[in-house]
Amino acid sequence: MTDTLLRSLRERLLDESEPLAGMLRKCLLLGAETGSEALRDWARKELNGYGSEDEVPKYRKVGGPPIAMDSISGYTLAKNQIIARHQLPREAWEYVPDEFSFKQPIEELEQLAGQKQLSFASPGLAYAQTIWNGQLDEFQSIINLYYVMSGTVLAGVLGQIRTKLVDLVADLTADTPLSELPKKDQVDAAVSHRIGDVYNTTIQTTNGPVAIGAKAKASTEGLTVEDALRLLDEVQRTAADVADTQRGELLDALAELRASVESDEPDTGEVVKKVGKLRAIVDQLGVASVSAATGGAVQALAELALNGAFG
């Protein structure tokens, strides 16, 4: 099996059309055969995705993509305006990262890389929108902020992973015949040299999204409960755009959610339940400004709740 495994992995690496996922699964087997936890850990994280406490390799990090904006000025609606991060209010910069970490499983990245354009939002952008709207006059409003990115950016990330694999296997087979099993120390050294010590976990503090796709929502890393409550303030501000007959239900749901979050002993289940209720009401309303403001707030609170922020 050793001869078949090494030979198959080496031959498949030379075929550019071979999916990365299959080759990484072979790396899992090779790590098990050689006793290299370093190789198994790296292959497993690439296949399953990196967790919130995992150090993300440099090759999975890219510069922040352009930001698209939908806005209203007077009676004029403008959509898909491209702006740079420095055009946001300075107070919002800390919530809008200049570097992104892609933590998704390799197969998800491969699917996304085939798309012509990706767009996605984040709680950080939602908070930046709140700050910006607070500085505009009553005849101007930012309806939505979201990132846009070409799928070729992810194709570049995948290309780097493929190159890492080629270098890794080349190191393993340079002094070891395909019919023999590399020693554990050889495998560990090759992983450390070509990949880095990414199999050691550390607290991940990089602020950036973890979910990429068509208007996908991103991680709440870097946001606090207080920040999420400010996002709820923005939802309440946009409630003025809702018809009088429907506004009461929205305001009641907001008040209930805020009361649960600000309770002396907030209950995670209650917070999640009320977040779901608010989201359902907003979806039924179908008011763009309210939906945009609510998106970041409800996701931020839901993730904070599920991560134990409310006890």
Rank of each mutant, 00 (worst) to 15 (best):
F120T: 10
A121D: 09
A121Y: 06
A121M: 13
P123A: 08
P123Q: 02
G124C: 03
G124A: 07
G124P: 01
G124H: 06
L125F: 06
Y127C: 04
A128Y: 07
Q129S: 15
T130Q: 01
T130Y: 10
T130V: 05
I131D: 00
W132P: 03
N133A: 08
Q135T: 10
D137P: 03
E138I: 08
F139R: 11
F139K: 15
F139S: 15
I142T: 12
I142C: 14
I142H: 01
I142G: 01
I142M: 03
N144Q: 14
Y146M: 05
Y147C: 03
Y147F: 14
Y147L: 01
S150A: 10
T152A: 03
V153H: 00
L154A: 07
L154P: 04
G156I: 06
G156E: 08
G159T: 08
G159Q: 08
Q160R: 14
K164N: 05
L165S: 07
L165W: 05
L165N: 03
V166S: 04
L168T: 12
L168G: 05
L168M: 12
V169E: 08
V169K: 05
D171L: 14
L172S: 04
T173P: 02
A174E: 15
D175S: 13
L178S: 05
L178P: 01
L178Y: 11
E180G: 02
L181H: 12
P182Q: 12
P182D: 09
K184G: 06
K184S: 09
D185T: 01
V187W: 11
D188E: 15
D188P: 11
A189I: 00
A189G: 08
V191G: 01
